[in-house]
Every structure is written in structure tokens, then in C-alpha cells.
Simulated scan of single mutants.
Amino acid sequence: MSGFWREYAENRIALLALLVVAVLVGAALGAPWIAPQDPYDLAGLDLMDARRPPGHVGSGGYVHLLGTDAQGRDLFSAILYGLRISLQMGLVAGAVAMSIGALLGILAAQAGGWVETAIMRVVDLQLSFPAILLALVLVAVLGQGKTQLVIALVAAQYAYFARTAYGAASAERRKDYVEAAAATPLSTARIVLRHVLPNVMPPLIVVGTVQVANAISLEATLSFLGLGLPPTEPSLGMLIANGFQYMMSGRTWISVYPGIALIVLIIAINLVGDQLRDQTNPRLRR
């Protein structure tokens, strides 16, 4: 781990991206203590503070650093809580999709035969559809809510993990250490869990990092279209959508600041994932 960290730290851009991710995650976790307002408390919102520019002193007696939106929410507070939702949706959906995809991919590689054919043809069919289209259909069918949104995100992403796990597990299955383990009286489950899975995890972690960013982007897209979370729990995508109609009237801060937060978060996670990919892929190492 020390050698891995030293190599990672050599890339200053990736190190800065990791720092940005850590700061954003810390700010999201500390939102209840950092944010001057609870944007989900509708009774605490004052419409007299609606659409106020950055620096405005509201009725609550504190300065709205980034201004307010059309409902009178403090944008700084709303962005912090929106980051919580975006990270929560991305991490939960990414973890569930990785678990399901890894299970299916390793099962297909280990079982072979008709099981492999059936699983991988379903995965190939899944990959042929755009993720946003599948997510839109599922959200329209299942309705709004965190659970429904996670199901839609998992269904749109598990195939990427399944394809990655299948390729890595197929390569590992033909190696000598797996054949040696199979020659001993070890169960198939023990061979998979103790020998194959640990060597399949590095590419899955890299794909997982990228897919977390994709899940955050997909959730923001669905929320922007009004198909994400309920309006009482505004995510970054919904905050951007709330200010879209005021862009031409000069109240650009309502959409711009949540958009900047979303872009910075996605770019930082992708940069971290790119560095992890470079370090775990021998062909890309210097």
C-alpha cells in the first residue's frame, strides 16, 4: 500500500482530485453542522428571501453566500445537502451494481456452458441499450423515491461490472494457481472466494470508481428531468432545474453554483478512477 500510495502521489493532478473528493465528501457528511439552514425544512423557508443574489442577508439573520433559489432556500445549504444525496445515490447504486455484476460475471466464467451463454447474452443485450433510456423507463414505471431510483441506477449499470468480472475471471481461471487449487479437495465456492475474487477486484474497483461518477451524473439527469427524487429532497440535478427558468432573467446563480458543484465532483472522481486504472493496468504503467 505504501508503494501504491507513493506512485499515486506522483501524479499531482490525481492527488488534487483525491483531495477535492475528500473535501466534498467531508462537506456533505458535515452538512447538518456546516449548513446555516436545513433546506428540507419547508416550514423554515421564507418566500421573502426567494431569488436573492449572493451576499444577501436573509430574514434568518445570516448571509446567503451563494444566494437563494425560487423557494427561498439558501443555495450553499442546498448544495451541501444535494451533495449528500448525490454521493449516497452514487455509492449505494455503485456498490449494489458491483455486487450483482461481479456475482454474475464470475458465475458465468466459472460455470461455462449454457449458464455462461445465458448470462453473457443478457449482459450484451443490456449494454446495447443507452443507460439513460433504461433508467428513464424504469423510473417512469417504478415511480419516484430513493429505493426506486437506486433500482433504476443498478439496472442501468450492473452489466458493466458483469462484463469486467467475466473477462477478469475467465483469464484467472486458466492460470496455474487456480488449476492447482482445483486439484486439491477444495470446494468451488472456496476457490472462487479465496483465489479468484481477490484477483478480480482491482479492475472492478477501477470500473466502480468510474461508475459511481456515472451514477451521480445519471441521477442528476433524472432529477433535472423531474423523474428523480421528490421535490422535498432536492438533489443537485433538481437544484439546477429549479433555476433553469430564471437563466434569461439574470438570476444565473440558482443553476450555476449547483452545476459547478456537480461538475467538480464528477471530474474529480473520474480523475481518481483514471489514476487507479493506470496503476492497476500493467500495459499502461510507465
Rank of each mutant, 00 (worst) to 15 (best):
residue 133 L to E: 04
residue 98 M to K: 03
residue 119 I to Y: 14
residue 72 G to Y: 04
residue 69 D to E: 01
residue 63 V to S: 09
residue 136 L to V: 11
residue 127 L to V: 05
residue 142 L to I: 06
residue 106 I to R: 05
residue 124 D to F: 03
residue 69 D to Y: 02
residue 128 S to P: 08
residue 93 A to T: 02
residue 62 Y to V: 00
residue 96 V to D: 04
residue 84 R to H: 08
residue 139 V to P: 04
residue 133 L to N: 08
residue 104 L to P: 04
residue 78 A to D: 10
residue 66 L to D: 01
residue 136 L to A: 12
residue 150 V to A: 08
residue 111 A to R: 13
residue 116 E to P: 09
residue 64 H to K: 04
residue 82 G to Q: 14
residue 133 L to Y: 09
residue 65 L to N: 03
residue 83 L to I: 08
residue 79 I to G: 12
residue 105 G to V: 00
residue 103 L to Q: 04
residue 130 P to M: 08
residue 150 V to C: 07
residue 67 G to I: 00
residue 63 V to H: 06
residue 68 T to H: 03
residue 100 I to C: 07
residue 116 E to T: 02
residue 102 A to W: 01
residue 76 F to M: 15
residue 129 F to T: 04
residue 113 G to M: 04
residue 150 V to K: 06
residue 109 A to S: 06
residue 88 Q to V: 03
residue 98 M to P: 05
residue 116 E to R: 14
residue 71 Q to G: 12
residue 60 G to F: 02
residue 154 V to K: 02
residue 114 W to T: 11
residue 119 I to P: 13
residue 125 L to H: 09
residue 96 V to M: 03
residue 70 A to Y: 05
residue 83 L to T: 11
residue 140 A to N: 12
residue 132 I to C: 09
residue 107 L to Y: 06
residue 108 A to P: 10
residue 141 V to R: 07
residue 76 F to D: 11
residue 60 G to S: 06
residue 89 M to C: 06
residue 115 V to L: 08
residue 62 Y to D: 02
residue 106 I to F: 06
residue 130 P to K: 10
residue 116 E to S: 12
residue 98 M to G: 09
residue 148 Q to T: 05
residue 114 W to Y: 03
residue 154 V to H: 02
residue 111 A to F: 01
residue 118 A to R: 04
residue 99 S to V: 10
residue 143 G to D: 07
residue 116 E to K: 13
residue 142 L to V: 08
residue 140 A to I: 02
residue 112 G to K: 01
residue 156 A to D: 02
residue 109 A to K: 01
residue 86 S to M: 03
residue 90 G to A: 07
residue 152 A to Y: 01
residue 143 G to F: 04
residue 154 V to M: 01
residue 131 A to G: 11
residue 76 F to C: 15
residue 127 L to K: 09
residue 143 G to P: 10
residue 140 A to Q: 12
residue 81 Y to T: 12
residue 94 G to T: 09
residue 84 R to G: 08
residue 115 V to A: 08
residue 82 G to Y: 15
residue 80 L to R: 15
residue 153 L to W: 03
residue 85 I to Y: 13
residue 116 E to N: 13
residue 67 G to F: 00
residue 67 G to Q: 00
residue 89 M to I: 07
residue 87 L to Y: 15
residue 64 H to V: 00
residue 119 I to Q: 11
